[in-house]
């Protein structure tokens, strides 16, 4: 596809639209899901099934006054929420939704997304530091140490996949998994590779995605019973709204990546079912993962900070490195 100005504008607009829509309606889905889990209805007053709740919440947030606390670092304070949302939107540009629906097919798609994702950590640090609030600073320190700890195993598992496919292009990674569920990389004895530990790699990636997006049970950054609201304690109005949307956009990106790297992207689980368009399969897969994430959030208590870091440094990183070695060895042999 040509890289014209019009193309870029359209792509970014669609990406923003998709991200914002998803973020808004994931909040609704989360609240309804929580309601189901907790024997209560959840939001059901505004519109059918409460579907008008997210836009109304958005209007309410925008109508609120933006308060910048005295003594805060103004520039960083304003930059932080924008920085939380922007990389999430940009990442959507390189994410393919099917073999035809993609804004811009980058050859280094995987790398680009991780580069953007690591900006998220900086936004949390900005937010915590500039708020001039002790809880916010503590929370941002936690969030950054968590981001560092979980980016390593996540990238190592991604390297495993890249090693198998030999490309960083997301389209090609999906192409390599074509032909049914037994070809997807989460499957233990994927055809052509016979690596029994791929399921574990998939789980590591999923856990890391949870941790990277600051979701329960790893939501230490915004542990409300200890750090009040964490790094966004001092944010109100749309500043808070942007953090919130950024979080959900990151969840969507995380589940998109999980789908693309391990669940065969838009490939139908059985070749017989491939008459259904690929994009449908893709959306089904990502929303299943999102549903799982919501389900986990409302069932598990929060871990501790040392438990979290121990899990990463003592378990996930060695395991993912081991799998990387095993994969490299198998590639040589098979």
């Amino acid at each position: 596809m040509e890289l014209t100005l019009l193309n870029v504008v359209i792509a970014v607009t669609i990406a923003i639209g998709f991200a914002a829509l998803n973020a808004a309606y994931l909040v609704w889905a989360e609240r309804r899901g929580a309601g189901r889990i907790q024997n209560r209805p959840g939001p059901n007053i505004n519109g059918p099934l409460g579907l008008l709740q997210p836009p109304l919440d958005g209007i309410k947030l925008m109508a609120k006054q933006l308060i910048i606390p005295g003594g805060a670092d103004k520039a960083l304070f304003i930059a932080a929420p924008v920085l939380a949302m922007a990389p999430a939107i940009v990442s959507f540009v390189t994410l393919p939704f099917s073999d035809t629906i993609i804004a811009h097919n980058l050859n280094i798609g995987v790398l680009a997304i991780f580069a953007f994702a690591s900006l998220g950590g900086i936004s949390l640090l900005f937010a915590g530091w500039s708020s001039r609030n002790k809880y916010a600073v503590m929370s941002s320190v936690r969030a950054v140490s968590q981001a560092i700890a979980y980016e390593i195993p996540m990238l190592v598992t991604v390297i495993t996949v890249v090693l198998i496919t030999g490309t960083m292009n997301l389209m090609e990674i999906v192409e390599a998994q074509k032909g049914g569920i037994w070809n997807w990389y989460f499957f233990p004895f994927t055809s052509g590779l016979y690596n029994p530990l791929m399921t574990m790699s998939f789980l590591i990636f999923f856990i890391c995605a949870l941790a990277e997006t600051n979701r329960a049970p790893f939501d230490l950054g915004e542990a409300e019973s200890e750090l009040v609201a964490g790094f966004h304690t001092e944010y109100g109005s749309m500043g808070f709204g942007l953090f919130f949307m950024g979080e959900y956009a990151n969840i969507v990106i995380g589940s998109c990546l999980t789908t693309l790297l391990f669940l065969g992207g838009w490939d139908a689980p059985l070749p017989v079912l491939s008459f259904i368009p690929g994009v449908v399969w893709f959306l089904i897969k990502i929303y299943l993962i999102i549903a799982t994430i919501i389900w986990i959030r409302w069932t598990f208590p929060r871990t501790t900070i040392y438990g979290l870091l121990n899990l990463s440094w003592k378990i996930l990183i060695p395991l993912s490195l081991f799998n990387l070695l095993l994969t490299a060895g198998l590639l040589k042999v098979v």
Partner: peptide
């Protein structure tokens, strides 16, 4: 108590 530890759902069951 469970809510203090970050698990919100048991509160709803207990309150029921």
């Amino acid at each position: 108590f469970v809510m203090d530890l970050g698990g919100f759902s048991p509160l709803m069951y207990a309150l029921q």
